[in-house]
Design a protein around this nucleic acid. Structure first.
Lengths: 145, 145
DNA sequence: TATTGTTATACTCTATAACTATA
DNA sequence: TATAGTTATAGAGTATAACAATA
């Protein structure tokens, strides 16, 4: 099919990014969903705690750029499944210090391994220089300016 | 905050892509939403018709990797707003040949201009070589293998 | 007054099955 | 039987306002 117009949707960055994000997320999504019944917000919270250890919901929110309502619900689900525990902060009783349970760490270790292999498979088509540059640019594009 | 773990969520490609896609879509989304009350599927269909001229829903679907149900609803909305017209195909009466109305072309021209400037602004932080490589890689990542 | 986190609500986006009409 | 497109329905994802408890 010929273009009647000079514009090409395939080079419009928001469109390209959305297509790439969607396509490259499907198979990973299938893993955390089928193995653990998790949603996107849930594995993200799980990963933050797995990576950084103890955090409050606010800290996760600012790091992941997730709104507190999303985090609140993800934390609830993870707690229901005994993957996460909360401790009321003694110095500021509004805040809760969140961390993974032993079971949560097992799940995290499993998904972390899946993610690492998944990422390796996604990037094995490119040179390591290109991948590094890609990540840099994506990180910049992720940051509001 | 120190990482307790070697894994870095900020380099996990599906996560990075999602963050970049989301951040880089917000302001453009605001334009087509506030000016024309459109949703994502609607501007995508509009753009396909603006770029390629007459297409059937199936053709749009295979090009945009959109399911026919999404297209059906987007087409309906665009038709309701008199931006699109349908002509029953005489040779295969199951299919409809879709094209923009004059009003649709005006809206397309406006949004196309916004998109071009928007894209330019997103990419002006990078060298043109880097941008070209970025688009190549995103296109590859968008394609199921 | 401001902040941490929760709940309610609505809207956007996606996925699937079942349907019609044509082929 | 298969294909083009529609409708119904549910689930996933996001955004916002209002709230309770604490600071």
């Amino acid at each position: 099919m010929d273009q009647k117009d000079g514009f090409d949707l395939q080079i419009f960055l928001p469109y390209l990014l959305n297509q790439a994000a969607e396509e490259s997320s499907i198979a990973f999504q299938e893993v955390y969903k089928s193995r653990y019944g998790m949603l996107r917000t849930e594995w993200r919270v799980l990963f933050h705690l797995g990576i950084y250890g103890e955090m409050t919901a606010t800290e996760i929110g600012s790091r992941a750029r997730m709104h507190k309502t999303k985090i609140s619900r993800a934390v609830q689900k993870l707690e229901d499944r005994r993957l996460l525990k909360r401790v009321r902060d003694a110095k500021d009783r509004r805040a809760e210090r969140l961390s993974l349970t032993d079971a949560g760490r097992v799940v995290y270790a499993d998904l972390r391994e899946v993610a690492a292999q998944y990422d390796a498979r996604l990037t094995d088509r490119f040179s390591s220089d290109d991948v590094a540059r890609l990540r840099d640019m994506l990180l910049i594009l992720s940051t509001p300016r």
